[in-house]
Design a protein around this nucleic acid. Sequence first.
DNA 1: TGACGGTCCGAACGGTCGTGCTATTTCCAT
DNA 2: ATGGAAATAGCACGACCGTTCGGACCGTCA
Lengths: 197, 197
Amino acid sequence: MTKGEETRSRIVDRALELASVSGIEGLTIGTLASSLSLSKSGLFAHFDSREELQVAVLERAADRFRELVVLPALRAPRGEPRVRALFEKWLDWGKSSFLPGGCVFVSAAAELDDRPGRARDVLVQAQRDFISVLSQAARVAVEEGHFRADADPDQFAFELYALVLGFHHHSRLLREARSGRRVRAAFDRLVKSFSPD
Amino acid sequence: MTKGEETRSRIVDRALELASVSGIEGLTIGTLASSLSLSKSGLFAHFDSREELQVAVLERAADRFRELVVLPALRAPRGEPRVRALFEKWLDWGKSSFLPGGCVFVSAAAELDDRPGRARDVLVQAQRDFISVLSQAARVAVEEGHFRADADPDQFAFELYALVLGFHHHSRLLREARSGRRVRAAFDRLVKSFSPD
DNA sequence: TGACGGTCCGAACGGTCGTGCTATTTCCAT
DNA sequence: ATGGAAATAGCACGACCGTTCGGACCGTCA
């Protein structure tokens, strides 16, 4: 890795931290540069535009997510244990040290849902990919007989997604300490209602 | 209502529309003024600061929410019908004509969760108030025998909240057409699992 | 008629934004 | 050790940010 690539990587890492707090739109070149002891122009030389920086941040976040959530969970046994592993790793994700302001995808989703562009495209693709991981895991649970044969894996993915969003909302905005217990109780009931009698 | 009050009200209305699209932080005095054919200074004369404008926007949104969601739903029969009315009115809320960019509380939650201030306080209070309306409705459903006697109303409120967040996420970011069907199926399952056998 | 409070405007302030240029430094291969 | 490329800094730009201030227009009441 050349020095330039290394610097660029350092920039993206720090940008991800800042974007976690102030959002992907609140991320500014000046603040980012001075927090890295770089000049604005020195930093900017690594990107053609601010949008490319935002795209790089989202892609870095997606990489981290795969590495910290998806891949470890896929090593869990097929079926319900794997579904549960996805859920638990996912809950931990928002508390990662490089996300001091909470999951960057959640804030980016609110900011980009009406702002077309490459950043939005990358975000949407990452979300779709992960949702399909969720429903695939649910499908495997059906195959394993952990979920009912007529269970709808996409419906399961939707509901699980909603639960984790609710968890994020309650713990970050409302600073609700019971969020963890609440969301796990909800998860258990969700799994139970998808399980055979 | 004096002319000044009327103008201020017009400003807040338009500001709510704009904030729905660009977020409460993306809301700028200049854009807002020109979209009302007002000068920046003329508009600013009605507020002491931008933060006060943001607070006014959130309070206006909370008023509308009470008027369009909470009050009509409270006229539904006690118990499960009232819970269902809250849910359905709530789903409609995000499609209101004055919220072209979706629910302003959702985007504000992502933007303000790490930014202390009066705007955050108003937002948090509005959310807490509504959540307590939800759990109170669930409590009534227990009293009416529509929900099980050992059902936890706060847990129900948490899960319902999560479902609607998930709906908003799927329909706005992912432009998923099936979101309505999905969230209603989830609601039915949620209600069923809180109902007596 | 004239003074007055309410309402809005025009101009300007200091800052910060993203983004170009050009110069300077730093690093590596020869 | 040195030439050339890569990496960073310096500086300036136009645009827009929130905010201030003096003044112009208004209907109302003395």
